[in-house]
Design a protein around this nucleic acid. Structure first.
Lengths: 206, 206
DNA sequence: ACCTTTAATCAACACCGTGTACATTTACTT
DNA sequence: AAGTAAATGTACACGGTGTTGATTAAAGGT
C-alpha cells in the first residue's frame, strides 16, 4: 500500500543527489558544501535540486529521517512467534534480515553521517531511535526465552548501548560486520543477549 | 616581557567583537552567524572586523587558542615549592588563583563554546590541553606530598577527566563552582587528589 | 599641548551562492 | 502516439564576503 508508482526520473534524480551529497559530505563536511557542488557532481540542473529540496539543510534532514522512517517501518513488522520459531531452529530472524538489507543499502550515507565529517546531532537521533525501538521493544522480545549463555566479549559494546557517547563504537563494529551478508548480520544480532535490569548486553561467543 | 603596550582601541574593539560573538553564538549557533551580525551587534564598521580577523572561522579559532595560550602561560609559572608551602598552610595555591581568575574572565565564552551551541571540536582541544598540562604536569606535583585522604565523591568527575565524552560534566561542575570566588575555586581544586597509575582522581570531602 | 602614528570609518566594488520564475525541451506513463 | 510531468536553461534580485582607497578620529610619545 505504501508503494506509489513513482516516476523513474524522480527516483534517479534523488539517488544521484543523495550519492553526490554523501561523497561531498565525506570530502568537505556539511558546512563546506554548496547546492552548486551537489548538482555539479550529480550532473543535474541546479533548479532541479530545488524541485525536490528546499535547501541543503532540508536535504540533510530528509536524508536522515527517511532512513529512520524506513527502519521504523521494518521494525513494526515484528512478530514474536516468528522470532521464537527462528531462534528455536537457529535461523536468522526474518525482519532482522530485512533490517540489515536496508542498513546495507544506506550504509555509505550512514557511515559518513555518523563519522567525524557527519552530523553530530544524528548520533543523538539514532541513539533515541535505538533506545525507543530496539532496546526497549525488540531485544526483550528476542531474549524472553533464552536465559542461558552468559555474555563473554563485549564490555565495549555494552558501553556503546548504554552511553550515548560511545555510538562511534557501535558504528565501527557495524562497519566491520557490514562486510558480512545481511543474513550473517541477522544471525549475529539474533545472538545478542539481554540480561537483568537493563544493564547488561552481551554477545554469545560461538 | 610579554607585555607589549597595545593600543587601547585594539583592545576595546576586540573585546566588543568577542562579546558580540559570544552572545550570537548562544543565540544562533556558529553557522548561523554572519560577520554583519557581529559588527552590527558590536556597533563597529564591518571593515574594522577584517582589520583583526580573516573571517568568522578565524575569529573562532583565535578565540579558542588565545584562551588555551593564556592558560598555558599561567601553568608554566608553577613552582613546586610554593605549592608545598601553600598546602602545608592550607592556603590557596597562587597560580591556581590566577588560573581561575582567568577562567572566570573568560567564563561566558567558555560556557557557550563548550555548550550545545558551541564547537564540539573545542571539547577535544580542551581535553588534550587538560591531559597535557593539567593531569600529567600539575596534579602529580600538587599531590606529591599528600598521600593520605582517600577519595570519596567523584566517580563522575573521574570519568570526566578520563573520557573525552564526559567533558560536559566538567563544565557543569565548573559552572556550579564558578559562583564561588576564584580564591575558593583554587582551594577546592588544590584538594584534588591523584592516585596510582594515572587512573584515579578524587576529591577530598571536607 | 602638539604632533605623529595608526586604528576606525565610510563608500564603493567584484564575486559568489541562494532561491525563484518562466518558457522550453525531454522522457516517462498509459 | 498523446498527455503529463520532470528536467533544463536562462535570467533575475538579494544578501554575504572580502578588499581597496580616501578620510576622520583617537590614541601615544615628547
Amino acid at each position: 500500500m505504501a508503494d506509489q508508482k513513482v516516476d523513474r526520473r524522480i527516483t534517479r534524480t534523488k539517488r544521484m543527489i543523495r550519492d553526490a551529497f554523501t561523497q561531498l559530505l565525506e570530502e568537505k563536511g556539511f558546512e563546506g558544501i554548496t547546492v552548486r557542488d551537489i548538482t555539479g557532481k550529480a550532473d543535474i540542473n541546479r533548479g532541479t535540486f530545488y524541485l525536490h529540496y528546499d535547501s541543503k539543510y532540508d536535504l540533510l534532514e530528509k536524508s536522515e529521517t527517511e532512513i529512520l522512517a524506513e527502519m521504523s517501518g521494518i521494525l513494526k513488522k515484528i512478530n514474536p512467534n516468528i522470532i521464537i520459531h527462528s531462534q528455536a531452529h537457529n535461523e536468522p530472524i526474518p525482519f532482522l534480515v530485512t533490517l540489515f538489507e536496508m542498513i546495507k543499502k544506506n550504509s555509505e550515507f550512514m557511515t559518513v553521517i555518523l563519522g567525524s565529517k557527519g552530523n553530530p546531532l544524528f548520533q543523538v537521533k539514532l541513539k533515541n531511535f535505538i533506545k525507543d525501538n530496539f532496546l526497549s521493544n525488540i531485544l526483550p522480545q528476542v531474549i524472553k526465552q533464552s536465559k542461558n549463555d552468559p555474555f563473554l566479549v563485549p564490555l565495549d559494546y555494552l558501553m556503546a548501548y548504554i552511553s550515548s557517547a560511545h555510538l562511534g563504537v557501535i558504528q565501527q563494529w557495524l562497519e566491520s560486520k557490514m562486510q558480512q551478508t545481511p543474513r550473517e548480520m541477522a544471525l549475529i544480532l539474533s545472538n545478542i543477549t539481554f540480561y537483568g535490569p537493563a544493564h547488561i548486553v552481551g554477545i554469545r561467543k560461538d
